[in-house]
Design a binder for these strands. Structure first.
Lengths: 147, 147
DNA sequence: ACCGTATTCGCAACGATTGTTGGTTCGCAA
DNA sequence: TTGCGAACCAACAATCGTTGCGAATACGGT
């Protein structure tokens, strides 16, 4: 995620205004390395600016997404998650607790894909699903050391 | 997707009953190689059995998903899609028209993944996003031959 | 400082999905 | 064949995540 200053400049450059609410969100996202939902962001923003509306949070998140400054993830049914990490990475989802982590994948260009059939590929998203260490031990996975 | 007969047997085996409504759904899904939404399945089912309720469609789809006979996809915000193709494959999504296709990927095991960090991976989903041939030519892609 | 216009907020509405309830049907094991 | 219980439908209401609307407000180029 770019700095609040850079985001402010980018907003003004396309005719969007930099309000205190947006500054709060810029700051929160800049220092966020997780994958928060809109609700979670609203909660955090409310701490810094009581009364900020969920509507405004959605509005600004959508702006950031369409500017390409923020990635929107739909990894599970239910609420979308937002990813401030704009570097080239992929995701790891725990089926147990729903936690999401970033992973870095190399060698993707070497995989063989059949069925593209004239399709133009702009982006490739890889999602690994499984169980995080905490959930793995909690569910008594036989391949894991038990407590 | 397994045959309606196999699905019927599988349902009975876990104490679920094989009703005419379910048989219609089994048949529809068996011969479906697309990625229909629940709504689309309900529409098709209504043609074969007028009056079948959307509620029943959801119920049976959920049963099939939890039995592992059907895959539920959440490729975009909005409605879920269901994939009767249970073979090992991945997906291609057109950002233009929303169309979804199956693709087959080999060599995935050779990619290098950093950040797994004790995570147990059960499944890997790859989603290629881009533009289908129809949308590519319609949007005037400079790299495509124009009309 | 001014003014145009974007932004804000609260509330209503939306689409997708699930819960409920009550009455009826019907699969299927014994 | 009979009986139990599951499944069906209808008709809602409710939930969740998200967006549309409209009046009041405030950013920011000049």
């Amino acid at each position: 995620m770019r700095t609040p200053q850079e985001l402010s400049t980018a907003f003004r450059a396309i005719g969007l205004k930099v309000t205190p609410q947006r500054q709060v969100l810029f700051s929160l996202l800049h220092q966020n390395d997780g994958h928060p939902s809109a609700e979670a962001i609203h909660l955090a923003a409310s701490a810094a600016m009581p009364g900020i509306s969920l509507r405004t949070v959605y509005q600004t998140l959508n702006d950031l997404v369409s500017m390409g400054e923020l990635q929107q993830l739909q990894l599970t049914p239910g609420s979308a998650r937002f990813d401030p990490n704009t570097s080239d990475h992929h995701h790891l989802v725990c089926d147990g607790c729903g936690d999401v982590r970033d992973v870095y994948v190399s060698g993707l260009a070497d995989v063989d894909v059949r069925g593209l059939d004239g399709f133009r590929v702009d982006a490739t998203d890889v999602v690994f699903r499984g169980s995080c260490p905490t959930c793995t031990s909690a569910t008594g996975d036989p391949s894991a050391p038990h407590a």
